[in-house]
Amino acid sequence: MAKTQLNVRVDEGTARAARERALARGMSVNRYIEELVRKDTGEVGHTFVDAAADFMKQYESVFAEEFGAEHEGRR
């Protein structure tokens, strides 16, 4: 896919936030912005699923501690 350069101006706080969020995700600011736009223009469900997956990954140890192996398979 061909790439097109897009120049935007944002305030320093927004630029700093974009850099920090990209760094936290281990990606470039360019890729971070691309993913934000794709999510915004894509299906809402994908955004929810991505957020839920991030949440579960972040709190996996808490859930494992609270609902250990004795709860596996229960609904």
Rank of each mutant, 00 (worst) to 15 (best):
Met1Glu: 05
Ala2Asn: 03
Ala2Asp: 06
Thr4Gly: 04
Gln5Asn: 05
Gln5His: 05
Gln5Glu: 11
Gln5Asp: 09
Leu6Arg: 13
Asn7Lys: 12
Asn7Val: 12
Asn7Trp: 05
Asn7Gln: 13
Val8Asp: 05
Val8Ser: 04
Arg9Gln: 10
Arg9Glu: 10
Asp11Asn: 11
Asp11Thr: 02
Asp11Pro: 03
Asp11Lys: 07
Asp11Val: 09
Asp11Cys: 13
Asp11Phe: 04
Glu12Asn: 12
Glu12Arg: 11
Glu12Met: 06
Glu12Ser: 15
Gly13Ala: 06
Ala15Trp: 04
Ala15Cys: 02
Arg16Phe: 15
Ala17Tyr: 03
Arg19Ile: 03
Arg19Glu: 11
Arg19Met: 04
Glu20Val: 10
Glu20Gln: 14
Glu20Cys: 08
Glu20Leu: 14
Ala22Gln: 00
Ala22Val: 06
Leu23His: 11
Leu23Gly: 12
Ala24Val: 01
Ala24Leu: 06
Ala24Arg: 10
Arg25Thr: 04
Gly26Ser: 12
Gly26Cys: 09
Gly26Thr: 04
Gly26Tyr: 06
Gly26Met: 11
Met27Pro: 01
Ser28Ile: 05
Val29Tyr: 06
Val29Asn: 01
Val29Asp: 02
Asn30Pro: 02
Arg31Pro: 00
Arg31Asp: 13
Arg31His: 14
Tyr32Cys: 03
Tyr32Arg: 05
Ile33Val: 14
Ile33Cys: 03
Ile33Ala: 13
Glu34Tyr: 02
Glu35Lys: 06
Leu36Ile: 03
Val37Asp: 01
Val37Cys: 10
Val37Trp: 01
Arg38Ile: 09
Arg38Glu: 09
Arg38Met: 14
Lys39Cys: 13
Asp40Arg: 13
Asp40Gln: 05
Asp40Asn: 12
Asp40Thr: 07
Thr41Glu: 15
Thr41Asp: 15
Glu43Lys: 10
Glu43Pro: 10
Glu43His: 12
Val44Leu: 13
Val44Trp: 02
Gly45Met: 01
Gly45Glu: 13
Gly45Trp: 09
Thr47Glu: 07
Thr47Asn: 08
Thr47Gln: 06
Phe48Leu: 15
Phe48His: 07
Val49Asn: 07
Val49Cys: 09
Val49Asp: 15
Asp50Trp: 04
Ala51Met: 08
Ala51Thr: 08
Ala51Asp: 08
Ala51Leu: 11
Ala52Ile: 04
Ala52Phe: 01
Asp54Ala: 00
Asp54His: 00
Phe55His: 00
Phe55Asp: 00
Met56Thr: 01
Met56Ser: 01
Lys57Gly: 00
Gln58Asn: 02
Gln58Glu: 02
Glu60Tyr: 04
Ser61Gly: 05
Ser61Arg: 08
Ala64Cys: 05
Glu65Thr: 15
Glu66Ala: 15
Glu66Ile: 14
Glu66Pro: 01
Glu66Lys: 13
Glu66His: 12
Phe67Arg: 06
Phe67Asp: 04
Gly68Tyr: 05
Ala69Met: 15
Ala69Asn: 14
Ala69Lys: 15
His71Cys: 09
His71Ser: 10
Glu72Lys: 11
Gly73Ser: 03
Arg74Gln: 12
Arg75Lys: 14
